[in-house]
Structure formats: C-alpha cells, structure tokens
Simulated assay, not measured.
Amino acid sequence: MSRKAMSRKALITSAITAIIVVAAGVFAALGGGSGEMPAPVCRAASSGGGSGAAPGGVAGGDAKVKVAVSILPQAYFVERIGGERVSVLVMVPPGASPHTYEPTASQMRELARAQMYVRVHVDFEEAWMPRIAAANKNMLVVDSTSGIELSSDKDPHVWLSPRLVRIQAEHIYEGLAKIDPDGRKVYERNEEAFLRELDALDEEISTILAPVRGGRFMVLHPAWGYFARDYGLEEVPIEVEGKEPSARELAALVEAAKADRVRVIFVQPQMNPRTAEVLAQQIGARVVTLDPLARDWPANLRAAARAIAEALGASGGGTAHKARP
C-alpha cells in the first residue's frame, strides 16, 4: 500500500474513533451508562385547549419555570396563573392517596431541577418535606395555605373551597413573580382572570346547592368539610380521625343515617370503599364516587355540587335532609 493510501486510512480511522467517543458520551448522559433509561416522572397532563392553561408566556420547554406541587388540583392553579411560562411536576399521581404516598427516586431527582414547590400540607408532605427541601436548597417553597384558618382537625383539603383557593392563588402568584420577575405582568393578568373565574364558580355552586342549604351528607373520608361549610351544609364522615369506625361507632352511624334518610354515601377512588358499602347495605343507600383530587378542578366541583344536591333531594321531588338539632 502506498504511503498516501496509508495516510488516508489513518485519517478515516481517527474520524470513526472520534464519532464513537462522542456517541458514547451522549448515551451515558441519557442514562445508558447505568444500563437503564431515565425514569419517568408524573407530570400534570395537558390536553391542548382543554388544559386550562392561561395565555402568554415563554416559548420552548427549556425556558419554562419548573414548579412542583403535591396534587393535581394544585397543578391546575399553577397553570392558570403561570400559563405557558411554567411546567408542573405533580408528586402524587392519579389514583394514589396523598395521605400515604411516598415519592419515587426519579421524582426526587426531578425536584433538583425545580425552582418552586407549592405546599398544601397533605400528610405525605409533612413526612417528606425535609427531604424534599434538601433535594434542592435553591428551590423556593411556597406555603399556599398561609393565612387560611384550618379546621380544628387540621383538615388539609382547602383546595375544595373556591373561596380558599383565592388565597392560594395569591401565594402562587407571589412565588412565581419572585422566581421569574420578567413574567410578573403575565402572572398578574392571569391571576386576575383566575380570580374572576373563582368568583363565577362560587356563585354557580351556591345556586346549585341553595335548595338543600342546611342539609347533611355522608362521606367515607372527611374531604369535603370546607366545601360544605362554604355552602351551608354539614359533612358526616364515616371515618373517625382517619380511622375506620368501631362496631359501636358504626351502629351509631347506621341510626344517624336512618334518621337523616340518607340515600347516598360518597366515597373517593383513592380509598377502600368497603366500610361505606357495608353501611350502605344496612340502610339501603347507594355508594357514589366523588374525587377530591380530579385534574379538571372546576368541572369536578360542579359535578360534586350537583351530586350532593341530588343526594339531598334537590331533584326528583325529594326533600333535603336537614341538620338535626
């Protein structure tokens, strides 16, 4: 082989080696070096125009402000205010309970890239918040319940009250404006629009529930206390301090349900409905699902209001089950 040909062959070999080295580096960065692809994280789903995201913001995924939240309804609030400027990491996936959930390793890694975490004081937060904060010391932690007077049992379900969500929205706006000052005007416009929507939703629910004001409705898990308080209702839970009732307590519930002519017991998909089903069989009631963690938050509250109104006799010629003195 000629000297010229040998030189050309050496150049080709060097080029191929360089390409292999670069490719190996890219593969390792994507997780190939450990033999596995990067683990997925649970993100708030987007469905185009139906996602509720407000207009205006940053174009391109890399430029978005990364915000972590505990539950799906919070993702809705953040997206209404943040619009296209934010991307949201949801810690508790659909179907899981925020009372018992434990974050995955991939979620904890993803938190290292978040710029803000919005708290709502569900049980898993109380157990995991020190580790969540330690995962990213530069992450702004926003307590969305600050300024809200919680019930005596420290019920965390404040997101089910449109009136209390107004307070949460203000905290979210302030947090976003702090970490992304360039987007302040966008966040301000979006928050104002969101607050108007909350007022309209509150008025709509008040109208739906007005005929049954003063009524009592039975639930498995006490998630709807703030909602009930807002609209002049009383929630009667089967669980006692988060625990299933004893035989004596269950017998008392049966008598109370019969006295109130309860025909519907509400359960939620994150919890075992067995106790509610047993009680329903004893009093001849139906078991109906209300989801306190549904992604489409405003539609879910409207549906809940209609279901409660129907259960209390607002349709079909029945009478509301009024609170007993």
Rank of each mutant, 00 (worst) to 15 (best):
F124S: 03
F77V: 01
G32N: 01
R286E: 15
R189A: 11
N190P: 10
D202V: 13
S34M: 13
S7F: 15
A309M: 11
G35Q: 10
A15L: 15
L72I: 03
G25K: 01
R324V: 14
A251N: 13
A303M: 13
L293Q: 01
S315A: 14
P130A: 08
H321D: 14
L290N: 04
L209T: 08
L195N: 10
G318R: 13
A294N: 00
L150E: 14
E126W: 09
R184P: 04
R286H: 14
Y173C: 03
V142H: 08
E234D: 12
A127T: 13
M129Q: 07
R263I: 02
G284Q: 04
A305K: 01
E126D: 14
V158K: 07
I132G: 01
T207L: 15
K4V: 12
I208N: 05
V288P: 09
Q107T: 02
E192N: 11
L160V: 12
E277R: 13
M108P: 10
A193Q: 05
K258D: 11
V21T: 14
W224G: 05
M1W: 11
N190W: 00
R8P: 12
K154I: 04
W297D: 00
R261Y: 07
G61C: 04
A23M: 08
E192C: 05
E149R: 13
A276H: 11
A45S: 13
R263Y: 02
V21F: 15
P273C: 02
S246N: 01
D153F: 02
Y231S: 05
Q74G: 02
S7T: 15
I167N: 15
N136A: 05
A39L: 12
V26W: 06
P181S: 06
V122N: 06
R196A: 14
A29W: 11
K137W: 06
I172G: 03
V88N: 08
R295N: 07
A114D: 13
A304D: 12
Y76M: 01
I81E: 00
D180M: 09
G52Q: 04
P298L: 00
P98F: 00
E36L: 13
K185W: 07
I283Q: 07
A75F: 00
Y101W: 10
E235Q: 15
K258E: 14
A63C: 12
H171N: 08
